[in-house]
């Protein structure tokens, strides 16, 4: 699919391609030999982003070429520990939303508190966009990243572009 970009509105939205994703299910008490994000947070280690998805679930985002190595490392670190690590790179679509009104655009679509006081770099929130499940987090540079299942990526894209139409600032934040 061609990489889409929307730049004519109150926020800039684009597809982010080329990421590999690894889902790890392991009990919350298990120590990992890598940074484990706090509840509701993301953490970064080199080029890898780790998202806290639920008490026993993490999602790693890394360059696609590093997926095999990451899976190997996890299998080694967690040998003998009940866990599930799976390459889910094709499962989800990733978007980048940036600009002064980025939070406002997403707040139009999600039933969560996205005020800048509450939502800062490192924060992750799983919720819904319109009618489908999605997660949102803030990068260290303040840009927002949105993921949703690839099967509903077009729906989410259309919603976000609509919410970012020129002249639709709400001024809530």
């Amino acid at each position: 699919m061609r990489k889409r970009q929307f730049d004519g509105g109150i926020a800039r939205i684009e597809d982010v391609e080329g990421y590999g994703m690894v889902s790890l299910r392991v009990s919350a008490e298990t120590a990992l030999r890598r940074a484990r994000p706090q509840r509701g947070q993301a953490c970064w280690e080199g080029e890898t982003t780790t998202l806290w998805m639920s008490p026993d679930e993490l999602l790693f985002l890394c360059p696609r070429a590093e997926v095999a190595g990451l899976l190997r490392d996890l299998a080694q670190d967690l040998a003998g520990v009940h866990h599930l690590a799976a390459d889910v790179s094709s499962a989800r679509a990733l978007f980048d939303v940036r600009g002064r009104n980025a939070l406002e655009v997403m707040a139009k679509l999600m039933p969560i508190d996205l005020s800048p006081q509450k939502f800062s770099p490192g924060r992750v929130r799983r919720s819904r966009i319109g009618q489908v499940a999605a997660a949102i987090w803030m990068q260290q540079d303040g840009a927002l990243r949105v993921i949703c299942f690839r099967s509903v990526a077009d729906y989410v894209w259309d919603l976000m572009v609509d919410a970012a139409r020129p002249g639709t600032e709400v001024g809530a934040f």
Binding site: R39, P55, P111, I112, D113, R126
Partner: peptide, 12 residues
């Protein structure tokens, strides 16, 4: 109580 988030009814 698991993720500590205030969840709107429509998320539940």
């Amino acid at each position: 109580p698991y993720c500590g988030e205030s969840a709107d009814e429509t998320e539940l």
